[in-house]
């Protein structure tokens, strides 16, 4: 992917975008947030919130519509055996199935990481911080 320029100092004021009341955003649901032309997918996975860039870099399919499931892994930690892992934490693009770790935005099998956003909950209100 194109390299992002380091944001020198990043002094720009951060903006908090209200997403939903906590009571309207229960576990197992997701929200599609558009800020200008930027789309962000926000998930509540068993009480933990995750916000990621919402367009798949492959062909721009909306990641907010992706299913959450597990995937197969095979690495030194598994002694190079293929195992099913990360159940419920792999976001699968609804377009063609690219898989992302919902915690980090890292794509499985690609040297690629989706931008992630901080999510805060204050006074029963869920925000993303940009």
């Amino acid at each position: 992917m194109s390299s992002e320029k380091p944001r020198s100092g990043s002094r720009r004021p951060r903006r908090k975008i209200p997403v939903a009341r906590l009571s309207d955003f229960p576990a197992g649901t997701r929200m599609e947030v558009s800020v200008g032309s930027v789309q962000i997918a926000v998930f509540n996975v068993e009480g933990d919130f995750f916000a990621l860039f919402g367009r798949c870099p492959h062909q721009s399919a909306p990641l907010s519509r992706g299913r959450l499931q597990g995937t197969v892994i095979c690495n030194a930690d598994t002694c190079w055996e293929t195992e099913w892992a990360h159940e419920g934490e792999v976001l699968v693009c609804p377009g063609h199935g690219m898989e992302y770790d919902i915690r980090s935005g890292k794509a499985f099998g690609y040297d690629l990481r989706l931008r992630t956003y901080e999510v805060s909950v204050e006074d029963g209100q869920v925000f993303i911080v940009m």
């Binding site: 720009r12 975008i17 649901t29 558009s34 200008g36 907010s64 519509r65 940009m130």
Partner: peptide, 20 residues
């Protein structure tokens, strides 16, 4: 990256089951 003036929309969505 987010300017105060940019319009924000929030929509609850469901996983897509139908690539149609």
């Amino acid at each position: 990256m987010a300017n105060e003036g940019q319009p924000v929309t929030v929509q609850r969505v469901e996983p897509s089951l139908n690539p149609v």
